[in-house]
Design a protein around this nucleic acid. Sequence first.
DNA 1: TAGGCCATGTAACCGGTTACATGATTAG
DNA 2: CTAATCATGTAACCGGTTACATGGCCTA
Lengths: 184, 184
Amino acid sequence: MNINTLILAILNAQDATGYEIKKLSTDGQFSYFVEISFGSIYPTLARLEKEGMVTSRAEVQSGKPDRKVYSITDTGRMEFIEALAQPPAPDKFKSEFMLLALNAGTQPAEIIKKSIESRIEHLTNTMERIKGVMENCDNEATEWVGNYGLYCMNCDLDYLNKNKSSLIGLAGGLLKNPSTEAAE
Amino acid sequence: MNINTLILAILNAQDATGYEIKKLSTDGQFSYFVEISFGSIYPTLARLEKEGMVTSRAEVQSGKPDRKVYSITDTGRMEFIEALAQPPAPDKFKSEFMLLALNAGTQPAEIIKKSIESRIEHLTNTMERIKGVMENCDNEATEWVGNYGLYCMNCDLDYLNKNKSSLIGLAGGLLKNPSTEAAE
DNA sequence: TAGGCCATGTAACCGGTTACATGATTAG
DNA sequence: CTAATCATGTAACCGGTTACATGGCCTA
């Protein structure tokens, strides 16, 4: 899934500026399985316009720099639909946490404990964000995807909560002060 | 998680040649959250050796090229443990399938149906592979990670099986022959 | 008054993949 | 006879990020 398709997907759903595209990819609908940076958004947008996939209109603003609002063209929409029709590549998934867990024995329990906690926190936050997105949106496909993500993350949390102590138990060092830990 | 750390992690678990490292990362313990190519393994190994993180011994073979078996050094092990102690970055997850699902309405039902089926197949295969790895390994951390993965993938499958028809229903085109489909 | 938000864009860099080069052995 | 497996390595390429440049407005 190249940036091309990603940007066309977003513009297919709504007109947007480069700045907004970035926000949509970090906080919006798809934020949990996609992420792009300005350094690739702006050049791509320019190229896409040259190729006739998108058009732009400048909105003059007082003080702030002009907004350049991009819209997808019919050509762009066709291109996008064609790209989507290709069998999707399997999900790509990279996890530093898993590598740490696999080597829990090399680290003190504190490290493992903190990593699990911040993982749980991150998962919880992501779920909240998705719930928020879903509330302000009555598109059925978005709902399906959102519920899918929420369901999977919930299972993830479940396993983590039930098995975190056993992973901490595999750590190579003891917590500095067991009594303090117990009081937490 | 750079290739550096990844390779040190593998060599920390066992001695291996570049070729074997590649195999371990695609079929082995960590295959479902990691993946590296020869083009980065060999240069990294060479650099790691120059830096004193690993050593190599050549095993002469008749016919085949010599095997260059790498081992981690104490320096390498320390470096690895230190790198692991850094708070792990959140998982990175990219999914073309999700993008397709989000835009199910732009595609004929057949496309969606096939994508779901091959996703289910891929998940099932991955789970089998992990089960295989776990059978030949009695390391507790590997088991924890394996079970984690299996549990999450199982939930994923669950949602897919229960909700696939509703996603297909959101597609933009009908299956060419509903009666044939029903008979499947 | 510091920091965050809005807003666009470029250039340098980098981590990594793909493709190429080479070649014997073995299994189907 | 073909394809896969074993085995190492290089070079070209590329998709993308990070950092930089610029600057006004608003909020704490």
